[in-house]
């Protein structure tokens, strides 16, 4: 075990608090009858999740979570709830509740058993000082012929003028994620862009008033 990956007690405490809030909000989302209230609880749950992201050193994902989920999806759902009068006065009592609970409990059990029975390869098991520095310390990246760069523990080395002492990727994830998105994962990234465009067009096509049907906006 090495200290570099130890989680501070305060962070651990914050995680449990955030988890408790998230789980509680999630339970409310699936149980309250008023769909509008459920949407509000959903936004709370999203915020809890983003907090967990921040605690997991994933600042960029956390920000995206807030922007996309809390800022866009929750609002979208809330507006939908308000537009469909049917649901604003409450969802019908859920059916097959006990069967659903059983199935969900089984899935949870399966996940839990798997999680606790697996021998995970953990960061805390790393011994290479370069690797530890690259993840959570500070390091220097060599410029070598291939352009890939070699990571070296910066603590014992004096950086030259052309070299920059970098923070480990877990400490400063945003820049690294950005680099990954436009380098190694540029193809999935662009594909996701295409998917979003397709989804938008599909949504518009579905919503377009059909021939002979009254426009839902009450127009022509």
């Amino acid at each position: 075990m090495n200290e570099a990956f130890e989680v501070p007690t305060v962070v651990s405490f914050a995680f449990w608090v955030a988890s408790a809030i998230t789980i509680a909000a999630a339970i409310m989302v699936v149980t309250v009858r008023d769909v509008f209230k459920a949407a509000v609880f959903l936004a709370g749950s999203f915020i809890g999740v983003s907090a967990i992201f921040f605690l997991l050193n994933a600042e960029f994902v956390g920000v995206v979570q807030i922007l996309v989920y809390v800022g866009a999806v929750s609002i979208l759902i809330a507006f939908s709830v308000m537009m469909i009068s049917d649901v604003s006065h409450g969802s019908q009592p859920s059916r097959a509740r006990y069967a659903s609970v059983t199935v969900s409990a089984l899935v949870l059990a399966a996940i839990a058993v798997t999680v606790y029975n697996t021998e995970w390869t953990l960061n805390s098991g790393l011994t290479d000082p370069d690797a530890i520095a690259g993840l959570s310390g500070t390091f220097i990246e060599d410029e070598i012929a291939s352009g890939e760069g070699r990571v070296r523990d910066a603590s014992g080395i004096q950086a030259s003028d052309s070299q920059v002492v970098q923070t480990g990727v877990l400490g400063d994830s945003t820049g690294t994620v950005g680099a990954l998105l436009v380098r190694e994962f540029v193809l999935p990234f662009e594909t996701v862009g295409l998917v979003i465009v397709a989804a938008l067009i599909g949504g518009l096509a579905l919503m377009r008033p059909r021939e002979g049907e009254p426009d839902p906006r009450g127009g022509g």
């Binding site: 789980i23 999630a26 769909v35 659903s100 199935v103 969900s104 839990a112």
Partner: peptide
């Protein structure tokens, strides 16, 4: 963390299986 993830998944699954309203 994975356990928390699993709990949230199970809650979501319960909702998917039991909710009647499509928005929920």
């Amino acid at each position: 963390v994975l356990l928390v993830s699993g709990i949230i998944f199970a809650i979501g699954l319960y909702g998917v299986l039991s909710r009647r309203s499509t928005i929920a």
